[in-house]
Design a protein around this nucleic acid. Structure first.
Length: 481
RNA sequence: UCCCCGGUAGCUCAAUCGGCAGAGCGGGUGGCUGUUAACCACUAGGUUGAUGGUUCGAGUCCGUCCCGGGGAGCCA
């Protein structure tokens, strides 16, 4: 973030602490003429046999590199310089000076160079030139050293912090819902089964799913697909809570918008209806985009230039215009009137296809769209049934280019209606006794939603594939590291 | 999981109708230069994803499998 300050560190026996390059550029005017120390990785080196070499050092604190000037008249530096190749980890000390060259305001004139670890140019995979994202995924341990992945990591960090800021400033409590859960039927896709049978050397490893083998938890357990149901428990005690953590879907889906492990933000609010739910969702998205615009300026500029032209303008426009709110029924009418031939013809009662959602947000409204009040039979049991008894108080927020970024609803707080819904959807009132009891004891209207962090980052950075906006993507067949 | 398109040098890609395996970048060597996607010259670098088949001959055609990308479904 732009206002970061280098934390104090123990001196390592030399004259001064290393400076983060982001801090260096921020205070360059004050630092010119001073001797400083920088630690980082070599992006490239350009040699001038006439007398100097140029080293570009990046330490990950910002997009910018520091140009280091090495005078070849100094044999003690030249010896080290031979191993200072692309990828090497080094420390340099020297005087910061105004740069006569184009492309940088200041540069360091090296007085000493320390090589921590070299990188053989013949085998180091990262070149100075652009690499495909597909290739970078194969070297996931090195890809954060590239401009794009480094920038994504910084934006992701800032956005994660902003999520907490947003909710904490509004009186929400951060709730840790379980990663391992026994609730498995929330209509949110396939679950990962967590099974740990007792292991003994004299017993052959049991087959997974063998009903006769006692499980660690004594019953089937799963990785969470959503913290919502548990968040409802605490919302009905603390008023307003939010969860922010990893979520898992065992869906065999291979697309640029899906991961098997992703991060979700889920607020849950008591005494809240769909309208307020919608307002919070919109405020959250805009707040997060605003943070990127103000605090991630340099990285955003990079994305705007190399990833998605016009990105900054898109984000600014999104901030200024209210989201469109349309009922499912109205959306179906609009799509029918549009005169567009879809692969799947639109009719009331069907789930909207990706082509329909894209048409709504990219062609008809050209901005984020909140779709509300979906047919009851399309949505899970916990969503509040509307007075027409045909629809539920659900909302999906769609954004251009990405699609669904938020899914939420007002929850069914009426005991009789909840029981009717569970009956209809075949949900066991035995297994969800606790959920029913929340309606028997002090039930109040409440609502919430889930925001996919990675999809928001995609929207904010323009990265076309979700695998580039999470450090270690998990997809079918892929779980490296 | 389904549909479509790919897999050729470290990377990004080309190779006409089935007929000698190519370029740029990167690496190495030399030259040049306050350079900055540096520039110029030379040079090394290949089991064409795997496997089986058709053919005088397969990177190219056919079968199977593996991997990647795009789309769909599922959803965030």
């Amino acid at each position: 973030m732009a206002t970061a300050v280098t934390p104090p560190r123990k001196d390592r026996g030399s004259m001064k602490e290393a400076l983060r390059i982001a801090d260096l550029f921020r205070e360059e005017q004050r630092l010119v003429g001073q001797t400083i120390r920088v630690q980082g990785w070599v992006r490239t080196r350009r040699d001038s046999k006439a007398g100097i070499s140029f080293i570009e050092v990046n330490d990950g604190s910002c997009l910018k590199n520091l140009q280091v000037i090495v005078e070849l008249a100094r044999p003690e530096l030249v010896e080290t310089l031979r191993s200072v190749t692309t990828g090497a980890g080094i420390q340099v000390e020297g005087v910061l000076q105004a740069s006569p060259g184009k492309g940088q305001s200041v540069e360091m004139h090296a007085a000493s160079i320390r090589l921590f670890g070299g990188a053989d140019p013949a085998t180091y995979p990262l070149q100075k030139k652009r690499h495909s994202f597909e290739f970078l995924r194969q070297i996931g341990h090195l890809r954060p050293r590239t401009n794009t992945l480094g920038a994504v990591a910084r934006v992701r960090s800032r956005l994660s912090f902003a999520v907490h800021q947003f909710f904490q400033e509004r009186g929400f409590f951060y709730l840790h819902t379980p990663i391992i859960t026994s609730s498995d039927c929330e209509g949110a896709g396939e679950v990962f089964r967590v099974t740990t049978p007792p292991s003994r050397d004299d017993v052959a490893a049991p087959e997974a799913g063998d009903a006769n083998v006692p499980d660690f938890f004594g019953k089937p357990a799963y990785l969470t697909v959503s913290g919502q149901l548990q968040a409802e428990i605490y919302a009905l005690a603390l008023g307003r809570v939010y969860t922010f953590g990893p979520t898992f879907r065992a869906e065999n889906s291979n697309t640029s918008r899906h991961l098997a492990e992703f991060w979700m933000v889920e607020p849950e609010m008591a005494f809240c209806d769909l309208q307020e739910d919608l307002e919070v969702a919109q405020a959250l998205i805009k707040n997060l985009l605003q943070v990127v615009l103000t605090d991630c300026n340099e990285d955003l500029e990079f994305f705007s230039r190399f990833i998605e032209p016009g990105l900054r303008e898109n984000l600014e426009r999104t901030l200024q215009t209210p989201f469109e709110t349309v009922t499912y029924t109205e959306a179906v009418e609009q799509l029918k009137k549009a005169g567009e031939t879809f692969a799947f013809p639109v009719k009331w009662g069907m789930d909207l296809q990706a082509e329909h959602e894209r048409f709504l947000t990219e062609k008809i409204f050209e901005k984020p769209v909140a779709l509300v009040h979906f047919p009851r039979h399309l949505k899970p049991f916990y969503m509040r049934v509307n007075d027409d008894e045909k629809t539920v108080a659900a909302m999906d927020i769609l954004v251009p280019g990405i699609g669904e970024i938020i899914g939420g609803s007002q929850r069914e707080e009426r005991l009789d209606m909840l029981l009717q819904q569970m009956e209809l959807k075949g949900i066991s009132t035995e297994d969800y006794r606790w959920y029913v009891e929340l309606r028997e004891f002090g039930s109040v209207p409440h609502a919430g939603f889930g925001l996919g962090l990675e999809r928001l980052i995609q929207f904010a950075t323009g990265l076309p594939n979700i695998r580039e906006v999470i450090p270690f993507p998990r997809t079918p067949g892929h779980a490296y590291f």
